[in-house]
Design a protein around this nucleic acid. Structure first.
Lengths: 223, 223
DNA sequence: GTCTATAATTAGATAGAC
DNA sequence: GTCTATCTAATTATAGAC
């Protein structure tokens, strides 16, 4: 009689628990892949960190590789969200087609704050970008190429207007990303050197410094 | 009678061959560790790349970890040699106590050229600096701390003289290293984007760009 | 959906012939 | 010194009970 009415909450509870382990596995995977690389991270340690058992990975995802793909997808979504959140009101895109010195400066600042928040992203990027794998091709086609074209194009626009230094846009792209991410990628090394790069004070000083380096001491003011 | 006289060349030939496999193992180890990380690189693939067999690693080195240590030691020696070689005549230290805008600029240029030559170094550094391991502690105490103090100290000196922008030296340290190394660490990704960062043209444009960014458009000229 | 048990493969390291 | 053969432990993935 009430078997249908009573079974629904049970199914919903099971579904909620399933979603919870899936999310826990994703978060744990990010941490382990970032720390040890794809080959170095073991599915056992990921499952243990997620508070569950190793076969759950093959149940919720098809394979270790599928788990990696889902984790990276999740990470880039969080990057977009973080960059948007760290942009000031009134600016909705730092490196878009309507770029100005002001929006570029805001883009640099939001990018620094976002990568400081998500060190796993650049750790995984560096580990994969180091060898030519299918995983690297996937990242480039799905995520990197578009961002590269936006940032490089923005610099070219500003440079053609004479509003920034006469530097090659591909050089600027890699220099900016490298300069923005290394303090957070290498945070454990910085700790051993007596530095804490995870504080707001450091992140803001770092963001200000990159604006000064790339746009000059007048920062993001218009010419 | 001639057993002693004849056996010497044989022993010498054996010793030479032994040294050759040792060196081949070191080079192969650098490549594999840089590509896959410490855990991800297998001693079998290292031995195969070196043209020998896996047990040779435990014969010539005590363990996988000992091989890693020897490889990193070798790598920093090559970094020193490369940086010295890329300095112009008359300047024997870019970031030493006698730093000027001229020597700093020369140091930046020689550093860019050196890391372009040795992408394995920064790949291994990033992989290890990402987690707190005994290997990271060893790198920091043996190699990184001294270089950090030299570079940061040089920037502080120039800044206190008012010869460079008023930027925190720790921010400058990580920004400079990140900006200098990423195009070569991520060279496979750059290839997928249609860029070749391994050409002399790129490396020199990159070196010039970093001098412009950190020392201004007048480059390394004295104030 | 989650668990235990286990299959199949591969890892680093060692033994012993040559 | 270098090789083949092998040990032990750890890996990813699967089977099947609950």
């Amino acid at each position: 009689m009430n078997s249908v009415a009573a079974s629904e909450p049970v199914a919903r509870r099971r579904q909620a628990r399933s979603e919870a382990t899936r999310t826990a596995l994703l978060d744990a995977a990010l941490h382990e892949f970032a720390a040890h690389g794809f080959e170095g991270a073991s599915t056992r340690s990921i499952a243990t960190r997620a508070g569950t058992h190793q076969p759950q990975i093959n149940y919720h995802f098809d394979s270790k590789e599928a788990l990696w793909l889902a984790a990276v997808e999740h990470l880039f979504t969080r990057l977009d969200e973080a960059m948007q959140r760290h942009l000031p009101n009134g600016i909705d895109q730092g490196f878009g087609p309507d770029v100005t010195r002001t929006t570029f400066a805001a883009g640099v600042r939001s990018f620094v704050r976002a990568v400081a928040e998500l060190p796993e992203l650049n750790r995984i990027m560096v580990q994969e970008a180091t060898i030519g794998s299918d995983r690297l091709s996937m990242i480039v086609e799905q995520h990197t190429r578009q961002r590269y074209q936006q940032l490089a194009g923005s610099w070219r626009t500003l440079r053609d207007r004479g509003e920034v230094a006469d530097l090659d846009e591909t050089v600027v792209y890699y220099s900016l990303i490298g300069a923005a991410s290394l303090p957070y990628v290498n945070a454990p090394e910085a700790r051993l050197l007596g530095l804490d790069t995870t504080t707001d004070v450091f992140v803001e000083a770092h963001a200000d410094a990159l604006v000064t380096l790339f746009l000059g001491p007048e920062g993001g003011s218009e010419p």
